[in-house]
Simulated scan of single mutants.
Amino acid sequence: MTIPLCMTNQRDVLIWPGCTNGEYSVKSGWVRTEYPNINEVQELINLIGAQKQRLELFAVVAWFVWNRRNKIRLQESSLDKSRIFSTAAQYLLAFQLKFPEKMAKSPAIATKWSPPLGEGYKTNYDGAVFEEAGEARIGVVVRNGNGEVLAALSEKIPYPGTVELVEILAARRAVQFIVELGMAQSIFEGDSKIVYKALKSGDVGHSSIGQYVKDIMSIPGSIRTFSFSHIRRQGNCVAHALAKRARFTFPLLVWMEHVSPDVIPFVLSDL
């Protein structure tokens, strides 16, 4: 449809201030009676724009008013003015149902390593796979309630064939490490949910890692208290860095009360 435009500038005016008797009949009230002196369309839009939903409905109603005016000018059939508001509201609702507003995703909560309570110890473990070399690497770090490193290791092992097996072997090495250190208790924490669930439930019947779960459960003879927990990879960065580091080092490296300089930033990030 081609709409002829005026060749001279025209001043915007409010053409729908209310009913002929001076009372506003639209219940939602485009202009409330406490604002009786609005003379500019922009003032009306600013007022309604304070609420997004009202502004959307106002825009649809305004379009229906404009559309009806042009149909009348072109002597075409038009919507009765008494139905403009209800029709506009139905039109907007149908559009919103078909194209629902996408809710903004909540920002991901950063996962951070948490220290053990009191005088306890936490042992984090992780595995890294390097298939091209046919190897896997294990990283283990033991820390106290202040986040201080008591011991750490980085060890190469032959690649056992799956990531799950690497992770369960890392868990087994973590338990062995605590026994070697002569410590009586620890929380063992890794980032594999499969391994965590198997260890938590003592599932020795698991098809691929059940035998290793059984091995782990038979190790803690000298450990009086132990438990298993799970953390996302982001919170397991020290053990992961130790596992990655093993690729470039001797088959086994052990640190007591410190770690290598390249791993220190990951330790500090957890404090």
Score class of each variant (00 low, 15 high):
G120T: 08
I209L: 09
A198K: 05
T8W: 05
T20W: 00
S269K: 15
T87C: 13
S77L: 07
S77Y: 03
G210M: 07
L165S: 02
T162M: 02
E76K: 13
T87N: 14
H206G: 10
E180S: 14
I84S: 02
P116N: 10
E119C: 05
G145A: 01
I72E: 15
L14H: 03
F130G: 00
F188W: 08
N39W: 01
S186N: 08
S28E: 12
R137F: 15
G18K: 11
F58E: 09
G139R: 01
Q53R: 14
E155I: 04
S114A: 11
V141T: 04
S28Q: 06
Q42R: 08
S78I: 02
N9L: 08
A171P: 01
Q234K: 09
T249W: 01
P220S: 10
D12S: 13
Q211V: 09
K200G: 04
H258Y: 13
A128V: 04
G182Y: 06
I15V: 14
C237T: 10
V65M: 11
I15M: 09
A50P: 00
G118P: 03
A59D: 04
K98Q: 15
V65Y: 08
S269I: 03
G145I: 00
I138T: 01
D215W: 14
L47M: 15
R233D: 06
E132C: 01
Q176N: 14
A62W: 12
V238A: 07
W255G: 05
V263T: 08
F85K: 04
L5W: 06
T225W: 13
A108H: 06
